[in-house]
Amino acid sequence: MSNHSASRSPLGPEETEDLAGEYVLGTLNAEQRRDVERRLLEDPQLQQAIGDWERRLQPYTAMVEPVAPSNRLWPRILRTLDSQEAAQSAPADDRAAHPAGLLSRLWHDLTLWRGLSFASILIATGLAAMLAFSPAQAPSSRYLVVLMTPQHTQAGWIVQASSPRQISLKPVGTFEVPPGKALEFWTKADDWSGPVSLGLVEPGETKQLSLDDLPPLEDNQLFELTLEDDTGSPLDRPTGPIQFIGRAVEL
């Protein structure tokens, strides 16, 4: 059958079972997984079939050796919950009147998108554009990047560009850099051979940058923050894990 025109057509019982099994097993590719996660919202049979496979297979996770989390992990979870709550309880007038309030509202609104598919992140980005570029802010801004955790569950920073050569990086959440480490800021356009370092970033501080030595900012350009040694990556590319990542949207 045609996979293109009928990609979102209703599934037969057999197809539902097959798709549910492969989804839970983990063999679907990124695109197929997103498709399942979208279908799931409106397909009770698929929900049921996935639930059945989760229940059957979950006991076999016991084959994996447990790994004790570091002592930092639980406090970090608590800090995230605290910042969510702080954003939720901020007085409404404040939020509307001050850019800082806008940012914390944006932060809160983005947290509502936690765990949803990549499609939702695009919606969240649209939302971000509305909030971050209200008249009280920078009216001439032309590009926006929301840098999220690699799992797209949490926004950490926003890049705003008032021109293709002038950008600012603003924190919207808290991030704790482990001792001896630093956050390094990178960018890469689609047709560049590799990422270019934009320098080290202090958590919680806004950073202004001119891209004088680089080609002008373009739509879909990639930005990321990686965790490196405190002197920065020893190579001309990232060596540490990605903490936050996002692509530029032209407004």
């Binding site: 992990l73 995230t80 765990g115 955790t149 690699p150």
Partner: peptide, 17 residues
Amino acid sequence: GIAEDIIHDAFVNIWNK
């Protein structure tokens, strides 16, 4: 390190959902 990031996100998700 990435696994701990994911567990962080998982517990925040568990709380929110």
